[in-house]
Design a protein around this nucleic acid. Structure first.
Lengths: 341, 341
DNA sequence: CTGAAAGCGCTTACAG
DNA sequence: CTGAAAGCGCTTACAG
């Protein structure tokens, strides 16, 4: 229900917020002095600073960030645009970014491109004029678009590499190697990769890394398309997985893996006895089903921290420091087992 | 790894973005005319409008929303602050809000208060000067704080009622009644409510509604505290649930319910045979465990739409239209069963 | 230590 | 239909 009526008491009574001019009038100082008192503590006569601060407090003054941004060019806020704010993958990344942003006294705001490249572009452009820098995670944009955005304001992409733009990505190899190794030890020889969106850079990286390793180990490996990177997409691929006659499958992400897991159970294919499944990302919920999903986890929190730090240095024009690799690791739960002989 | 070097190519080459003055110079018209051409299509000589638009395009002009906001007081953006952006509960709500915002050509930005009232207040204050209105969902703030925020700019609270401020909340009764009814039919007489945060208005509403109904039906009902509204909090409460000697428990939310479910299984208490569990919110993942969680679902998407529409009318100063009730409903999956005789 | 002035990028009465 | 001017709220050289 709406609580429509209670509203009347507030409506229309909104008083214009106090400005530095109000404080100036109130204290007899000039607006310049007020501005200094509020922004450069210690640079003024202590008592005038005191009086101005008190007046500000009394009048309920809050700085107008947009008015400040005009002369300074700095908004004090960072933007994080994700391809799908509704995807649990990004939770830790968000936390990491928040952590660093707050250390730097920047406000972090989020925007959601809802998996649409068109929307992503317009949101990023829009946001760009209102923030000091942008974090683009899981971007669906083309390299050229990203480069153009990057040329107008500091920007760092996460989980993707684009020539000429700062990026931070995890090292997927360790996790994949551990998972594939665990499978090989358990006798698996025929493996499938259930792919993600073709436009996803990360999808290509995962597939390529897995492919190279499997080949070098003499395992057979096939890529199987999925319709969408969701549980529905995973379920939909079930028949094609079965038809491919593999004993184990890597899924592009946990959503797909979860969908496949469920479909397998529903259609009577036992996981992990008849089919081993490993996902990517270790999202919220991966440990919920029976069997719990084994998954390759990115150090998302650190990715978020690193990316934000990178963005901050980019904004300051400071040189970027090289960072250590951010290795993925394999979280082995219950969805893989020895192949039946 | 960081891709530090590739960056050099971009660094420092950022050209100042084009302004309407650049366009003016470029076309020979005045800035006022440029402004009009860009904002009031049709009000100008068609060919001058054409030429100005072409020049804008050519120069890669993008309006500076903050500069525009100063004289107009309108930013064209709406803010949504959630108590925990990492909680799957809000997914549908976000989608609903996005839907309405985009229909109104407003940009929706998000901010996360990380379950901290202090942070929530400062973020809300900060954001308020940069948006046309604010949506506060699952606020941890006191009524008075919310009222103060509401007095400076349009604001609507979601999932909570505060005297004097526009709000939209679901009707929890139908879902609770259906769930409790299902339990009663199956012979349950002793019920527990595993509570959420005391500061949560929604927690109080759920408990109160459940309590009143149980009492009126002659069922016994107890409230059991939890340490936090998470899976860990649910697991931690397991022993107290067992000690309370109830046959069914309602959990404040699905996170708690999921934690309890898992703890029960781990400690050898069969769900639903020995203990029936029902959660709230039907979040992502509720259907994943075995048994799948039965849960009371809010029409979150509609809540988000409704709240955003309400905010928009508040911004326009239009009168609010009363809305129909937004009933919850019971999604009965596998976590409840008849009490063993 | 403090103030007057110019400027950030835009909009909008007010004239013409 | 178009332009000159004032103003939105702030900051920051430049003087004093």
């Amino acid at each position: 229900m709406d609580q429509s009526d209670a509203t009347a008491s507030v409506r229309g009574e909104r008083k214009a917020p106090a400005t530095i001019y109000d404080i100036a009038r109130h204290t007899g100082f000039s607006p310049s002095t007020v501005s200094r008192a509020l922004n450069k503590p210690g640079r003024l006569n202590a008592t005038t600073e005191r009086r101005i601060r008190d007046a500000a407090e009394e009048l309920g003054y809050r700085i107008n960030p947009m008015a400040r941004a005009l002369p300074t060019g700095k908004t004090g806020t960072l933007g994080l645009v994700v391809s799908d704010i509704t995807n649990p993958v990004y939770f830790d990344l968000v936390r990491g970014a928040e952590h660093i942003a707050s250390e730097a006294d920047s406000t972090l705001i989020f925007a959601d491109s809802q998996e649409s490249a068109r929307l992503e572009r317009s949101i990023a452009e829009r946001l760009q004029t209102s923030v000091d820098g942008l974090l683009l995670v899981g971007s669906r944009l083309g390299d050229q678009d990203i480069r153009e955005l990057s040329s107008v304001k500091p920007l760092v992409v996460v989980n993707r590499l684009v020539d000429g733009v700062p990026a931070v990505v995890p090292d997927v190899a360790p996790g994949i190697e551990a998972a594939l190794g665990a499978l090989r030890e358990r006798g698996h020889r025929r493996i499938a990769y259930l792919a993600g969106p073709e436009a996803s850079w990360m999808n290509t990286l995962r597939w390529q890394t897995l492919f190279d390793l499997a080949v070098s180990w003499g395992l057979s490996i096939v890529e199987i398309k999925s319709t969408e990177p969701t549980r529905a997409g995973g379920a939909e691929a079930f028949q094609r997985i079965v038809a491919a006659d593999v004993t184990a499958v890597f899924a592009y992400n946990d959503l797909i893996a979860l969908g496949l897991l469920r479909a397998s159970r529903d259609r009577g294919v036992a996981v992990p006895e008849s089919l081993s499944i490993v996902g990517f990302d270790d999202i919220f919920g991966a440990d919920l089903p029976t069997p719990a999903l084994s998954s390759i986890r990115s150090p998302l929190g650190e990715l978020g921290e690193r990316a934000t730090r990178r963005l901050l240095t980019e904004i300051d024009g400071a040189p970027a420091e090289a960072g250590a690799a951010l290795p993925t690791r394999f979280i082995d739960r219950e969805s893989i087992a020895a192949v039946r002989s």
